[in-house]
């Protein structure tokens, strides 16, 4: 369907965002000798192999021991190293929450927690691995920055950018092959939302893979005479409140779209901002308090209501509430 639409962004190639991380990580390693890598037996899955090959003295296989990996990373920062830890999002957060809380966040350590296979689009492995709570857990931690880029290019740019930023970061990305629709030369500014498409009737705040779905939804809405603004919230914390308030001051309502639970995700962050400064109706596109299951990424986004069609439906619903 998306091919017949008049899309404001297009793509010629698809690639996984984890490859954007892997390529960005290698580039960050070339630019800064203090960048080091740690991985808990998932070097291939995280695409960390090229860095390991080029910088073997700066790369540490930890085995299947994520708690220890977080502690080692925290310790390495003390000497000025910039450790990037790599494992699945589930094992990067819930499994090691207390280690991150005490040794990294509370201790203010410059660790980059790099989390692949986030969300439903992990696919066939099922709910044990499809974490949908990670953004909530991480954004609740003081000092933590939370970033969820949307495609290969943005993930690569974000990975390079976090190496230059001092402080703990949670970087979330995924496994599926996904449209590459952002500029390969983009400058990634942590905490700065990106207004991708201007509109007047409703604002769609999207993060991660669902930014693409929002781009498709905008074209669908436009074909029905509804003008949607699309804002890419790649940094969920710190949240660009000014961008959110400016847009909703104009459109008067919002849809949030993310591959995450309603509870604790981007939707809550946007709703909190609006409730405090400019109350306006909000509809959430996300997972509503359930676990995922096995299936293809496309099937899962459809079944759990996370695709462009669901964003369109949410937009119509929120417009009726204005």
């Amino acid at each position: 369907m998306e091919k017949t639409l008049d899309l404001k962004f297009n793509y010629t190639e698809k690639k996984d965002t984890r490859s954007g991380f892997g390529d960005g990580f290698l580039e960050a390693g070339r630019r800064n000798p203090n960048v080091v890598g740690l991985c808990a037996d998932l070097i291939g899955s995280l695409k960390m192999g090229a860095f390991q090959k080029e910088f073997p003295e700066r790369f540490f296989q930890t085995g299947i021991a994520e708690a220890n990996m977080m502690g080692i990373a925290a310790g390495m920062t003390i000497n000025g190293k910039i450790p990037f830890t790599g494992t699945f999002a589930n094992f990067s957060t819930g499994r090691v929450y207390d280690q991150i809380r005490q040794s990294i966040a509370y201790s203010g350590k410059n660790v980059k927690i790099c989390a692949s296979h986030a969300g439903l689009t992990l696919g066939e492995d099922g709910a044990t691995h499809q974490i949908l709570e990670d953004v909530g857990m991480m954004k609740m931690l003081p000092h933590m920055t939370v970033i969820n880029p949307c495609d290969y290019n943005q993930t690569k740019a974000a990975t390079i950018a976090i190496a230059d930023y001092e402080g703990p970061v949670y970087l979330r990305f995924g496994r599926p092959s996904w449209p590459i629709f952002t500029d390969p030369a983009q400058k990634f500014e942590i905490g700065k939302a990106w207004k991708m498409i201007e509109g007047t009737d409703v604002t769609i705040f999207a993060t991660g893979h669902l930014v693409w779905e929002a781009v498709v939804a905008e074209a669908m809405l436009r074909s029905e005479g509804i003008s949607a603004e699309v804002i890419n919230i790649h940094t969920i914390k710190p949240l660009d409140q000014e961008a959110i308030l400016d847009s909703v001051a104009k459109t008067g309502c919002a849809v949030t779209a993310e591959e995450h639970q309603y509870n604790g995700g981007l939707g809550d962050s946007v709703a909190q901002t609006l409730a405090r400064h400019n109350p306006a109706p909000v509809e959430y596109v996300g997972v509503n308090d359930s676990f995922g299951e096995s299936g293809t990424p496309t099937q899962l986004l459809d079944k759990y209501g996370l695709d462009a069609a669901n964003i369109v439906a949410a937009a119509k619903k929120v417009l009726a509430r204005k």
Binding site: F60, N68, G75, T77
Partner: peptide
């Protein structure tokens, strides 16, 4: 773990 990281 932290001490090991610092040592490495």
């Amino acid at each position: 773990s932290v001490a090991i990281g610092a040592a490495q």
